[in-house]
C-alpha cells in the first residue's frame, strides 16, 4: 500500500504555494535555459519544481529511489528540451508536469515489463490481502489527504496520479503507426470530426 503519503501541513502549504506561482518568472527562466543554457535560471526552476515533483512521485512510487529518479529524469528533460516550451500554448507549470507525466509513464512501463511473467494465480493472496477491511480503514485518512492534493493538481497531472494505463493513441503515435505525416493525420481527423458534427447537429433537429 502507499507508504509515503503526505501529511496535512505539506498539503496546506502546497495549495498556498500554488496561489502564489509567478508564471511570467517561470517563463523567463525557461527561456534563459533554452537560449543561453543559463545554469542559474535552471537552479531556480529546479528549486521551484523538484519539491513538487517529489511529492507527486512519492505517491506514485513508494520507493524513494524511484521518486528521486522521476525528479532527476524530469528536470534533465526540462534542461534538454526547454526550447520546446511555447508560452503561447500553456503555462510553464503545465509543460513541466507534462514532461513529468511522460517520465512517469516510461518508468511504469519499465516496471510493468519486468513484471510480465508474474501473472499466475499466486498473486491472488496478495490482491485479497490488499482489499481487506482493516487495510482500507487504516489507509483511509491518508487517502483523504492524498485526494485533496490530487484535486488541486492540473488535469494532466491528476491523470498520472489517478492511474490507469493510457491506451488512447496520440496523433503522433497514430501518424507513426500508419506511416503517414502528422499533418495528414491532423487533417483527416479534422475532416472526420467536421462531418460528424454536421451529422450530430442534424440529429438534434
Amino acid at each position: 500500500m502507499q507508504t509515503n503519503l503526505l501529511c496535512k501541513e505539506t498539503n496546506a502549504k502546497s495549495i498556498k504555494m500554488s496561489d502564489e506561482i509567478d508564471h511570467p518568472q517561470l517563463c523567463l527562466w525557461l527561456k534563459a535555459v533554452s537560449e543561453n543554457r543559463n545554469k542559474q535560471a535552471f537552479t531556480h526552476l529546479f528549486n521551484f519544481f523538484a519539491p513538487k515533483i517529489i511529492r507527486i512521485a512519492r505517491s506514485k512510487f513508494p520507493n524513494e529511489a524511484q521518486a528521486n529518479e522521476v525528479v532527476q529524469e524530469t528536470m534533465s528533460n526540462v534542461w534538454r528540451k526547454a526550447h520546446l516550451f511555447n508560452q503561447d500554448k500553456g503555462a510553464a507549470t503545465t509543460w513541466v508536469y507534462t514532461v513529468m507525466r511522460n517520465v512517469t509513464f516510461d518508468m511504469l512501463r519499465k516496471v510493468k515489463a519486468n513484471k510480465e511473467d508474474n501473472l499466475s494465480d499466486d498473486i491472488w493472496p496478495i490482491a485479497e490481502g490488499l482489499v481487506s477491511d482493516d487495510d482500507a480503514y487504516e489507509d483511509h485518512l491518508e487517502t483523504e489527504n492524498l485526494k485533496a492534493v490530487i484535486d488541486n493538481l492540473p488535469e494532466s497531472q491528476r491523470e498520472v496520479v489517478k492511474g490507469f494505463y493510457f491506451m488512447e493513441m496520440t496523433q503522433e503515435q497514430l501518424a507513426e503507426k500508419l506511416n503517414l505525416p502528422l499533418g495528414t493525420i491532423k487533417s483527416r481527423l479534422r475532416l472526420a470530426l467536421a462531418k460528424l458534427k454536421v451529422k450530430l447537429g442534424e440529429n438534434h433537429d
Binding site: 487495510d135 482500507a136 489507509d139 487517502t143 492511474g163 490507469f164 488512447e168
Partner: peptide, 26 residues
C-alpha cells in the same frame, strides 16, 4: 469515475490505490 471510453469487449488495466476503490474491487 474515470475518463476512459470502453465499449463491450474492450479492456483496460487500472491502477487502484484509493481505499474506497480497493473496497470497490472487493
Amino acid at each position: 469515475p474515470l475518463a476512459i471510453f470502453l465499449l463491450p469487449e474492450g479492456k483496460v488495466r487500472l491502477r487502484i490505490f484509493e481505499a474506497k476503490y480497493l473496497k470497490m474491487i472487493s
